[in-house]
Design a protein around this nucleic acid. Structure first.
Lengths: 121, 121
DNA sequence: AGGACTTTCAACCGGTTGGTTGACTGGCTC
DNA sequence: GAGCCAGTCAACCAACCGGTTGAAAGTCCT
């Protein structure tokens, strides 16, 4: 196992319950019980989710007195952003290049170009 | 199942092979065979990955002549960004607020006071 | 029509996941 | 030290995932 960091982060955030926990933790730290309170599932299930988030580095649990706190670890956002923005930038750049090529072709060759497109799903 | 869009997107990107496909598709469209070429796995396995990406809306396959092309669908990046940045912003704002409170406490009350807790409703 | 190639479906397998229940530990407070 | 409460571990289960193989459609070109 020990999947790479990004895989773990994305996988951790692929669950709605876990995303909700993260959203709530962004507002403020919480204990396991506070975290579990809104959900229907058992406390143990929440704890398991927590361990997934912790394993992905999305969350940390500084040791402390009885009601241990859970804290959001915001660096993972940077990791995701880096990957996402890289892909996005490359794609956009490519589209720009493609447009350039197309318009260049349009200028030089005045032949017809019936290009019908209807994307969108 | 029809899990919500974000869950599907995150889950799709949680696999290294799939992320690699996306990275390569950001550079340019490809056919399934071209996509599959670098990997050890069977063509069918690649196809399955493709369907996951397609199901998440990360990728589209406009109908066309025999070697069908696979195209990256960049809108999903916006969806992820929106979620990520919202969480990040809230967390940062909260830390800023916390810092303000702490420094304020440091200034006004130079004596007693160990009121340190960060709980949440 | 035949043949090659691409695409897709289906069944199967081992490992992981999300959830359950039950039991156990660790600290605090009487 | 008894008891409670928060947190944790372990076993189990059904469902899902990533991969395989085998077979069936399409689709294109002679």
């Amino acid at each position: 196992m020990v999947a790479d960091a990004l895989s773990q982060i994305f996988a951790a955030l692929a669950d709605p319950t876990r995303r909700d926990m993260v959203a709530r933790l962004a507002v403020g730290d919480a204990t396991v019980n506070q975290l579990a309170e809104p959900y229907e599932m058992s406390l143990q299930a929440v704890y398991k989710h927590l361990r997934v988030l912790e394993g992905a580095g999305v969350v940390s649990r500084p040791p402390g007195p009885q009601p241990r706190s859970v804290r959001l670890e915001t660096e993972v956002f940077d990791l995701m952003d880096t990957w996402i923005e890289r892909a996005r930038r490359q794609a956009e750049e490519r589209y720009r290049r493609l447009d350039a090529v197309l318009s260049a072709m349009n200028e030089t060759t005045t032949t017809e170009t019936d290009e019908q497109n209807g994307s969108v799903a």
